[in-house]
Amino acid sequence: MITMCRYITIVALLLPTQDQASTKSAKEKLIVDDSFEKWDWIPIAFGQRKEGRQRLKEGRTLPFEHRGPLLRISKGFILPSGRMVDGKEAFKGKSSQLQDTQVGLHGRYSSIIKPNGRFRYEVALKGKGTFSFRAWVGAKNKTSGQFRWMGFPDLIKIKTSDKWKVYRGNFTLPDLNRPGFQLPDKVSAAIVVNRDDVIFVDEFRVWEVAD
């Protein structure tokens, strides 16, 4: 029995905390660093009003907190970044609650993922549903210059639990090259949370791992 427990303990200690083992490399560049500590109020843009109206008509919730004509946004983001939570609900200080939304595609996580790069991440999550960090991969036809989407792979996909937990792992962009198309130097990504899911996120970091 004791031997079995030791064995289990040793194995457990050796197992990676998630489905991918995380590694630290000597040279890493921090490309995402979101602690969601500072928030500000900015005007709700016209497009957001239209979209918000449509969402409410469809019975969906708004993905941000608003008061009057302003919405609350985490500093560093240019478009809505969830709802601020603090106190007991938060992981540390303040966190962000995401529901039925995608965050960071324009601005914050724009053009940050190198197609042939290696990346390490760390994120604190809790909630009901799945946290995805999804890439938007498009390429230009080398001859005609025509743009085409190559795919939208999930770089990180985590089913959360109802308690805060820090998840770590690595990812690379899957090979989405097609003949005749030129991928850009870097692609954009966004946090995606589905309609019926409610995810809390904090301390989200991604490093680009140098070879």
Binding site: F46, G47, Q48
Partner: peptide
Amino acid sequence: SRCLPFEDNSFSGTWMY
């Protein structure tokens, strides 16, 4: 109206409201 951004219809519309 600007304080009610998600009302059914606003006092004025378009992006230059």
